[in-house]
Design a protein around this nucleic acid. Structure first.
Length: 274
DNA sequence: CATAGCTCCTGACCGC
DNA sequence: TGCGGTCAGGAGCTAT
């Protein structure tokens, strides 16, 4: 599942190559989450800017506007150089941007992903989709103090608060579970009850786990690969995610799985406290 | 405002 | 081997 590390790894994989490229054609496959919102032919001749990331979204400037892309849960973007023979669009290829410098293609079996045109990042529909997103975990403002204050008054479990993305962006199911394990916090703990020191600890380990995943190319459980088709390796370093029943790597207690908000949560009942 | 539930989609997996 | 049922999951949307 593409979370912040996977999205950022993807962005880095094509941003420089795509910058300043001229659009030759835009092709669409099956519908994604929302319609593109603009005539595909209108992109032809326009120039790409430098792709940036906000949360799990990628903003790719095109002409005077841009495309907001999301990988959903099974999407991957690949960049191929113009020299490479471009394979025909496959069943799960739903978007392709051909340029004079290469092609960007979105493959997404589940089609929870999105590619939406907006006249600017701060105008609809991009602005609507980004509204309400929390702080970037690598922003200097993301501190224990911030986290503690942002969670104040909340009754939802800390795991769900992390997933919601309105406090801090970037963590999906994998990294939320891993960060809580590393912080020694029970995922079912009420978010508003998190102490200052534990908030501090959580902010720190969340940044650390995301940074580590970024370093090793993200996590590849099934579909994910970077802009050059390379799989990530963080799945080999997971402590709790997907490890139900297996011994905790720290204390050997069997890892437990519970469901929170229709989502699986994995944790060590011994290492993680409320 | 905060929260819970529903929804999109399809490959993988399970039991018969 | 084939088939139906169930599950997973990001996040917007609706309802409470």
């Amino acid at each position: 599942m593409p979370e912040l590390p996977e999205v950022e790894v993807t962005r880095r994989g094509f941003a420089d190559s795509a910058r300043d490229a001229r659009v030759l054609a835009l092709r669409l496959g099956k519908p994604l989450r929302w319609p593109l919102g603009r005539d595909p032919d209108a992109f032809v001749g326009e120039r790409l800017g430098l792709a940036e990331r906000r949360g799990k979204y990628i903003w790719l400037p095109v002409g005077a506007g841009g495309l907001l892309l999301h990988l959903g849960m099974s999407g991957s973007l690949t960049w191929s150089d113009p020299a490479e023979a471009l394979p025909a669009m496959g069943t799960h290829d739903h978007f392709e941007l051909q340029t004079d410098r290469g092609s960007l293609r979105l493959n997404d079996p589940r089609r929870f992903g999105a590619v939406v045109w907006a006249p600017a990042l701060d105008r609809p529909p991009a602005a609507n989709l980004l509204a309400g997103l929390g702080i970037e975990p690598f922003d200097a403002g993301f501190t224990g103090t911030y986290l503690h204050a942002a969670l104040r008054g909340r009754r939802v479990a800390i795991k769900q608060a992390l997933l919601a993305g309105d406090v801090v962006v970037g963590a999906g199911n994998i990294y939320a579970c891993e960060a809580l394990f590393l912080a020694g916090i029970d995922p079912r703990a009420r978010s508003g009850r998190l102490s200052r020191p534990r908030s501090e600890r959580l902010a720190l380990v969340l940044r650390q786990v995301l940074a580590r995943a970024l370093e090793v190319g993200g996590s590849t459980l099934r579909d994910f690969s970077d802009a050059h088709g390379v799989a990530g390796a963080f799945q080999n370093e997971m402590h709790v995610y997907g490890r139900e029943g297996q011994p905790c790597l720290r204390c050997a207690t069997p890892i437990r799985r519970v469901v929170q908000g229709q989502r699986s949560t994995f944790f060590c009942p011994s290492c993680q406290k409320r």
